[in-house]
Every structure is written in structure tokens, then in C-alpha cells.
Design a protein around this nucleic acid. Sequence first.
DNA 1: ATAGGGTTAG
Length: 833
Amino acid sequence: MKAFCLLRNRLKPFPINNNVFRRCFSPLPIYTNTNLAHQLHFIFTKRPATSPDDPDLRALSPFLNPKLVETVLYSFQSWKLAHFFFTWASNQQGYRHNAYTFNAIASILSRARQNAPLRALSEQILRSRCPMTPGALGFFIRCLGCAGLVEEANSLFDQVQSEGLCFPNVYAYNCLLEAVSKSNCVDLVDARLKEMSDRGFVFDKYTLTPVLQVYCNAGRFDKAFDVFNMISDRGFLDGYLFSILALAFTKWGQVDKAFELIEVMEARNVDFTEKTFIVLIHGFLKQSRLDRALQLFDKMKNSGFVPDISLYDVLIGVFSTAKKLDKALGLYAEMKEFNVQPDTGIITKLISCCNDEGELKRLFKEIGRDMNLEALTMLYNSLLTVLVNNDSIDKAYSLLRVMLGESCSNDLQGDEFCWENDIVPSPNASSFGVVIDGLCKAGKLDLAVGLFRDMSQKIGCKPNLLICNNLISGLCSSHRMEDSLEILREMEKSGLVPSPFTHNAIFGCLCKRMDVAGALDLIKKMRVHGHEPWIKHCTLMVKELCKHKKAVEACKFLDDVVEEGFIPDMIAYSAAFDGLIRIHEVDLAMELFRDIVARGNYPDVVAYNTMMKGLCQAKRVAEAEELLKEMVMKGLVPSVVTYNSLIDGWCKNGSLEAAMRCLSEMFDKGREPNVITYTTLVNGLCNSGRPEEALMVWNEMVAEKGLAPGEIAFMALVHGLCKCGRPNEAVVHLREMKSREMKPDGYVYTALVSAFLAQLNHPLALEMVEEMVREGRFPGKLDKNHAIAGDAVIELLRDSRTSSSIRDLIAEGNIPSISMSDVESESLDGCIT
DNA sequence: ATAGGGTTAG
């Protein structure tokens, strides 16, 4: 009685419970499952969501029983609510689920394809030691099977037996086989069959059907035939079994064999189901066997079935690809006879059938003739879609203008679509949608915005969310922030609620522009809407700020985002680490790295790579090595990039041996070195005055590993050889590089000039200067190599062998900072700085 | 009808 008083007080506001209350006042209240089910349903569906500790729920808890729980479970529309309720019920004292409540939630989850909770459920049913009949076990197993949880089904089947919860019969076994038949685990099926016959179970049709299925899935012809014959001998053959085999033949590419089988079926008067026809025709078409597909299509119609729209769609699609308008129109006419309504997809395919405008006109005449205005609009919309998809956005735009009733005579291309005697339908929202979308993709944003305005102003057609989103996103990708904000304001004014996509398009634009304040403002607004900002946009903001050396600001931004309750991921932070490293703030980067880890984030390989690069560049190779150990200990597998950065670090800090050792270890670790690895080593070896080894490494890369060095690799080698005083060999590689259409830059030419000068080989140095000028690569005034190249020119000017050629170059104005007057006045020393 | 961003070589 006490419980009822409690209930009366708590549940007053629910009208649905009126009769419950009436009964509460009678001396002996009848408290039925139906009433309770209504109350529970009501409490669980009310908004905002009920907490499991809700006092009303606590009051109802003592009345729970399995039958009630089953009723309530089936009363929910969404699996989430059902699951939430089931979990709540599981935790109520004094209540225990039985096999039927487990099966109820299992079937709900299975239908919703919620595999994770279903898997958990399969463990829960065991844990709860819930006894079940073989039938109940079978049902549960089938739910697992439908969701593709074959392993779970199989292990549950064994465990319920070892726990003594259920002893399967033939039905339960059949259910298990059916679950396994979704896979191609032949062994599993064989084992279970053996188990069944050991236990003296007799195979029936439902045992053998999944067996056939699994052999077919696994492509095991031989076994499949054995089973098929076994089924046939026992007189179990039916249309379904035939169709399994026929479909298997089809999937094995043996469409003709499948067709023979169909003829056998016909001869034996086995009935086909509609589904068999549909599945086989689709299968034949997947094997590109239009001939057989059409034959079967005829058989289907002769058997009295009306083909479904999917068949017309796929067949018309085939004719559309082959541009066979007549055939497609034939099918279209047939559809109309059968009263199958064509959808947009089919009409679009019909339009794509047309090879030219003549055919298009014919099509429109033929199919537009007896369409009502609404259908005509759909037809025109399909045409708009086809035009947009064929990059004829201008034509689509003109057509829409015609549909808007604007005269086509003034229009450049509009008259193509002004067919006399034709009624041109008015556009609807999706006509605008298609064209606005196309205009956005073509970057014609002003036209898109114009159409958007015309839409409501000229024909009073309200833009929908999709159109607004596409337009905003189009404007944003052209960085037209103000225009998109204007559209957003209009949306809000007209009562259209922006979606997460709307806000994120704008958010991304603000990030690209590095508008930190604007982005944070928008995040605040988004939070109110319950929209999450896409972290990739935060990463973009970080990248952009870092590009402008504002890594510290980037970190601040990430902090502020955290402050708003949105947690950036490792990628965003990695971008920030890299930004800090690029402004030589390795310690700050390290500090941030450690902070993030302490906050429970898991740095990945790229994050470690970035940090290691930073340390190596700061000549703190030992610390980088420590990080390598750390990442390996955490189970991360270093990548080629990891090793490349370390190799660079070792090379630049005098540990060439370590670098070379790493190269050979990379092979052992299955991390094949790439061009970057080799280039790093070539550079390192040359810088240490070891050109022979550099050339060996180079040869290993080119000859043994077959890697193709790029511009940077070649330039590293040429430059390196020059640095080692071997300009003649360097020139050989320079020629090789040029023959592969790669362009050496001023840095490389300057190195060559200097190296030849060092050998006092002024004529070859001159040649290099001339080539550099010819290629337009003489270092400009802001170039680091400008002074070196200039000094070289002056030196060549002073040598009688080369001075006249150099004078010519100067006279032609080819050497920045040196003019003829400098040469005449011989005040050259000051002109190059 | 709606995603995908961060690291390595002269």
C-alpha cells in the first residue's frame, strides 16, 4: 500500500495513468502489466531523458516481471531506448531477466544491427546463468547470426551446454548452422554436422539448407553438389534450395549453368519466388550478362510477377550506359503498363541515354506527354541534374531561367531548351538545389547567390536546409565569410535551424582565415546548439597560425577550445608541436607533449616523429633516442619517417656510424628505406668529407633498390660532391638530372662554380655561370647564395681567359647587382655584399 | 546528403 501512495504522488502529471489512479483509490488495487507497461514506456520516452535514478522509476522497480519487461521492450520505437530500459531493468534488485526478455532485446538489437551491445548481451546471458529452452537458445542464436556475429553464436552455443543452461535439440542446431551459413566457415559446419550425427540427431531440410549455403559461399563446388544431391535424394528440394545453388553459380561467373538449373526447376515444376527472380536477375547483370538477365526477366513476367522498380532501374541503367534510348523507352512503357511509378533515378538514367539534343527532345515528347505538372518538374529536374553532372552548368542555369519564365530569346543558350508546344514546368526547391549546388562547385558563386535570392523573391519558394548548407559551404570554400554569415542570418530569421554542417562550414572558413576570436565566438554559439566543431578545422587553424610563426597563439587557441569543452585530438596537437619546433621552441613543445600525455592522450607515431625531429634539429639526439625507446615500449612501431629523422640527427651530430647502422637495421625491421633516407645519408657523408661512401649509398639506392631519386636527392648529391672538391663527378650527375627533366637551382650551380674556382678551373666555372644564367637561376639579391655567386663572377672577371665572356653577361644585364659602370670604374669590391 | 586534418631529405 505504501508503494501505491508513493506512486500516486509521483505520477500525477501523466494523463495516461488515469485509470491506474482510479484503481489506486479502491481498497484492493489491481495493478496490471498493461498499466505498468504504459507508465514505464511513458517515463522512458519523456524528454529530457529520464535518469536511471529517477524516483518514479525506483517506485516502479518492485513491480518488474519478465513479461512486463518484454512488453515494454517491444513498445519502443528506437533500439537505444529499449537498450537503455533493458539495462535499467537488469540493475533492479529482485528482478531477473529470463530467456524471453533476453530474446526480445536481442531481436531488437539485431534488427538495428547494433553489434557491440549484442555481443555484450551474449556475454550477459551467460553471466546471468539464465536457463533456456532449446527453442529460446535457437532464437537468440539466430539474432546473433542475423547480425553476422558468427563467432559469438558458436561460442555461446558451446558455453550454454558446458554451464548446463540448455541442451540443444535439432532445432537449436539448425539455428546455429543458419547463423554460421552467413560466413564461409566450412570447417565449422563440418564439425557441427559430425557432432549432430554423433548425438544421433537426424538431418532435416533446415539442417542441410545452411550447409549448402556455406559450401556455396566458400566456393566449394564438390561439397555443394554432394549436399545438393543429398537434399534431392531425401526429397527436400524446393525453390529456395535451387536458388541458393543458382545464385552461387552466378557468383562463380557461371551464368549459363545457373540458367540451366533454372530450366531444370521449371521442368520439375518447382515454384520460383519473386525474390529468387529479383536476386538472380541482379546477379546476372553484375556478371554483365544482359542476355540471360532479360530472358529471366521475361520468365518472371510470364510467371505473373510484376517486376519491382529495382529491376527496371538496373536494366534501364544498363541501356543508359550503352546509350540505347529505344530499349530504355521500351522498358519505360512497360513500367507504365504495370503501373510501376518511375522515380528520379530512372528518369535521370533515361535522360543519360540520349546521345544528342534530338534524342533528348524525342524523350521529352514521349515521356513528358502524359505527365502531370508535378511529374514534369521531376523530369526537368533530372535534366538539370544530368546537365550539372556533365559539366554543362551554364546550360542548366539557362534552363532554370527558362523554367522561371524568363524569355529565352535574350538568353545566350536558353533557346536550346525552348521547345515549341511544350509546357515548361515551374521549378521547385530541388530544381534550385541542383543548380545552386552546381554553380557552387563551378565556383560561380555570384550566380548561385542570385538564384538563391530569386528563389524566394520571384516564386516564393523557401530554401531548405540542404540548399542553404551547400551555398554556405560553397561560399566558405571561396573564403566569402561575410556572404555566408548573411545566409546564416537569413536562415535563422526564416526559422531554418542550422545543422552541425552549416556551422562547421563557417567554422572552417574562420579557421582558414586565422580568425581566432571569430572561431571561438562561433564555438560558443555551436555549444548552445549542441553542435561539435570538427576538430580538423581546429587543426587547420593551428597549421595556418604556425605557418605564420604564431605557434604560441595556436597553443592558446587549443587551450581555449578545451575550455569550451571540446577536446582536440593528437593530430591537432601534433600540428602545434611542429609549429613550436619550427620557431625553435623545442622545450615548449616537449612541455606540451608531456602535458597532453598526462591528460590521458596517447601520442601516435607521427606525434613522436615530430618531437624526435625537433630534438634532433636542436642537437639533442640522445633525448630523441630516449623517445624512440619510449614509443617502442608503448607498443608503437617506428615508421620510415622516424628512422629518417634519427639518421639525419646522427649525421648532423657526428654519429655517421650510427646512421649507417640504422640503414641496415631498417631492412631487418621491414621498414624499407626510401629516397629520403638515402638522400639524408648522401648529404651526411658528403658533409663529413666521405664522397666515396656517399656514391656507394647512392648506387645502392639507384641500382640495387631501384628507387628513383628526385630533384632534391640529385641536388644533394651534386652539391655534396662539390663540397668534397669533386666538381667533375658532380657535373656528370648534373647532366643526368637534367636529362630527367629536373631543374637544378642557383644553390647547386653556385656550388659547382665555387668548386671549379677552388680547382682554379676558371673555364669550367665560367661554363657553369653561363648555364646558370641561361637557365635563369642566377641567385637574386635576396638569395643566400647571391654574394658567393657575385664574388665568383668578380673573380672570373679578373681572369683574362674568362673576363670577356663575363663582361658580355654583365652587359646584357644578367648579373644582378653588377652593372657595366661598376666594371668600368673597377669599384667592384663594394657592390656585392 | 555531409570529412578527414598532423611528421622526414640539399
